[in-house]
């Protein structure tokens, strides 16, 4: 009888494990991620038991941590602003940042073109996840909830902006952002390359960038309107 009970509980354990396996897709291949990290990230960042700040801050405990949160580290004004607006490094935002750092934080000092390959990002994040004790917002049980990146099809990026329309629309922006490019308290938006402008606005629209006013303003702009604004502001010195 004792024997039978034991068998039953073993079966139960196996079933539970199988269910977890089914629902929990790992972020990526951590082992491969280690090699990608060594090649692409390690010249500036350390992670692991003895990690210290280098050119970039160390990445232990990055998941669930507020952006720019080491007081001893010298961050860009831009990422500090994003931090104060509430940027927290969850999986979705780390993924967006790794793909294109400037899409998420325009003036970041992280001088890195981005990991364009989704598999590379997945694997690096799986590797970094090992060094986060208490990861938050990692939807291992619900992979479908995962939003990948600033999701911009080529046709959106290639819309030719109508600068005259942009000039009218810009009057909403210039209530706060000064048209001569001065910035005190509110960043300058003049003279940006069009693509950076478009990507940044879509990052607000998709609520990847954190600021509530900008999420609201961008949230109701169409793809054409964003392109029109980018075309207009690009022409301002």
């Amino acid at each position: 009888m004792r024997h039978a009970v034991l068998i039953l509980s073993v079966c139960a354990a196996i079933t539970t494990a199988a269910r977890a396996e089914e629902g929990a897709r790992p972020i990526g291949d951590a082992e491969r991620g280690e090699t990608v990290f060594a090649r692409k990230c390690a010249s500036c960042h350390q992670v692991g038991p003895d990690a210290r700040h280098r050119i970039g801050p160390h990445l232990n405990g990055i998941f669930g941590r507020k952006a720019a949160s080491f007081p001893e580290f010298n961050y860009s004004r831009s990422i500090e602003r994003a931090r104060d607006d509430g940027l927290v490094w969850d999986l979705r935002r780390l993924d967006a940042y790794l793909e294109n750092p400037k899409a998420l934080v325009s003036g970041t000092r992280m001088n890195f073109a981005g990991l364009k390959n989704q598999r590379d990002r997945d694997d690096v994040l799986a590797y970094l996840r090992i060094f986060s004790d208490n990861p938050q917002n990692i939807p291992e049980a619900a992979p479908t909830a995962r939003k990948m990146e600033v999701d911009l099809p080529e046709e959106v990026l290639s819309i030719e902006g109508d600068a005259a329309f942009g000039e009218y629309l810009s009057s909403e922006c210039t209530t706060c952002h000064q048209v001569d490019g001065d910035n005190d308290g509110i960043p300058s938006i003049t003279g940006w390359p069009e693509e950076d402008f478009v990507v940044a606005m879509h990052a607000y629209k998709q609520k990847l960038r954190p600021h509530p006013v900008m999420q609201m303003m961008a949230g109701r702009l169409s793809d054409e309107e964003i392109a029109a604004l980018a075309a207009y502001f690009k022409g301002l010195e």
Partner: peptide, 21 residues
């Protein structure tokens, strides 16, 4: 406090923006 300070600084930026507008 950081967010509240930033909101205040933003209001200064807005004042400069709207008055020049």
């Amino acid at each position: 406090e950081d967010l509240r300070r930033q909101t205040f600084e933003e209001s200064l930026g807005w004042y400069a923006g709207i008055t020049s507008d």
